[in-house]
Nucleic acid binder design. Structure first.
Lengths: 250, 250
DNA sequence: CTTGACCTTCTCGTTACGTTATCCTTTATA
DNA sequence: TATAAAGGATAACGTAACGAGAAGGTCAAG
């Protein structure tokens, strides 16, 4: 069988098959004197094995190791791969939550009514909680326990929501005070930044100084945010907050 | 500020900073006549923006576009990024399920008692169902509905489990018949492969011919599987099943 | 004998740097 | 003031798994 035929049969590109030959993953058993690659049944068998592992996102090098060691522990390889994939997914989950929250902060802050904000906040808390502990709790205690936990959370959220609002109010007040001195590196300015961090931590699963600083920058460059803080605290408040945060994370 | 200082401050490597300069993402505002890169406050500001987006897994090229177009729609960019990340995660989810099932098939098949198998099967069905429809149902109908759905599933699984077992019995019988002729490409052999596919589909969320063929190969190369089929159907059964499947997916 | 459909072997481009290697400038110490 | 250490610079190769394209050889058909 020539390369074109195998390519069509397997769904791989001819380039890929040549590459597999190049790295020694799939060397055609026969090469005529015209230089053409001739694949036979054994090669097809091997390719099918390759495709199987490739579909599970194994690296080609790893596949090669598996196929070339006949007594390789396939089960362990599958487990390790499984673990790696889960790590990747957890990483992505973290990113997704952070970006969701960023979006929420960005537009929720400026367009939602107070009730809507509370609803969104509540749903988010429930959702997060379910993602983190849902399976665990379900596994350990069964369904009833999960529902009970939800109930508790529903009762708690209103309190928590209040504390977030209080935090923001405190932020406004301290910010107003701090601006009098005009020094964004003064101690009171650091308290402002600290408050902002605590407020932010209600929305962000993973806090990092970089992200904090980045958000501060966005505040400055997005007029909706500038308006938000300047309206509530006074002209120049966003700028000052920005400077304080940058000092804080330095 | 020289490059070393900025590197330590930002956590990036010097090489990375030079690279950012090279691609024009972060060009130091001043370069002394000794050729040293001099970063000032504006540069730090920009770098902080860069780190913010980088943390969300944006590509450097995309970050550059965002930062260099002052009226860029940040919100839309975040949304698109969010969508992309979710796609990646969904892809990973698929992989993880497939690999989990593969592991389960590989070792469950050989070491578990019948009751254990049923328990595992039931739990898996519940789990899968929850993953696929759980959030959706919860969102639409609330908690009670979810529990109801679980109850239905719990009642159904025993039946389904039976049908899986029946399928496997049929597979054994047809396989025995087919082996008489000895032709792995005969029509009856194709029926055997078809049965095996249907049986497999109870365990695999996503069926592909490649994976099917790959599993057949594993059957052949793993003595636990060879023993399993050879014991139940007769000597050479695994080999014949393998051949039939390869014919079938061709 | 030419055309078209194959085949071959290069080589570059992709992403975001890590890792040398070689050389130049500044700073600290003897 | 000579020298050594620290830190700066450019340049080039390597990474994973191919895609794209160039330049040229082979084969069957008309």
């Amino acid at each position: 069988m020539l390369i074109n035929e195998l390519a069509k049969l397997s769904g791989l590109s001819k380039r890929a098959l040549r590459y597999y030959d190049e790295i020694g993953l799939l060397t055609p058993s026969d090469t005529g004197d015209n230089g053409y690659r001739q694949y036979n049944v054994t090669d097809i068998d091997r390719l099918q094995q390759i495709l199987f592992y490739r579909e599970l996102d194994f690296k080609l090098e790893e596949i090669q190791r598996i196929l070339d060691a006949p007594d390789f522990n396939v089960n362990e390889a599958l487990r390790k791969q499984h673990e790696m994939l889960e790590q990747k997914r957890n990483y992505l989950d973290g990113l997704i939550i952070t970006i969701q929250n960023t979006i929420q902060v960005m537009e929720g802050e400026t367009t939602m009514t107070n009730e809507q904000k509370f609803e969104a906040f509540k749903n988010k808390m429930i959702e997060d909680n379910d993602k983190q502990y849902g399976e665990e709790i379900r596994g350990k205690y069964g369904e009833e326990q999960v529902l009970a936990s939800y109930g508790k959370l529903k009762n708690m959220t209103e309190e928590q929501y209040e504390s977030v609002n209080q935090l923001e109010q405190m932020l406004f007040e301290r910010l107003k005070e701090a601006m009098v001195g005009g020094d964004a590196s003064a101690e009171v300015a650091m308290e402002v930044a600290e408050l902002h961090k605590r407020w932010l931590s209600f929305y962000w699963a993973k806090y990092t100084p970089q992200a904090h600083a980045g958000l501060a920058q966005m505040y400055l460059h997005d007029e909706r945010f500038t308006a938000y803080y300047d309206d509530r605290v006074g002209k120049g408040a966003t700028q000052f907050l920005h400077d304080a945060i940058l000092e804080y994370v330095k």
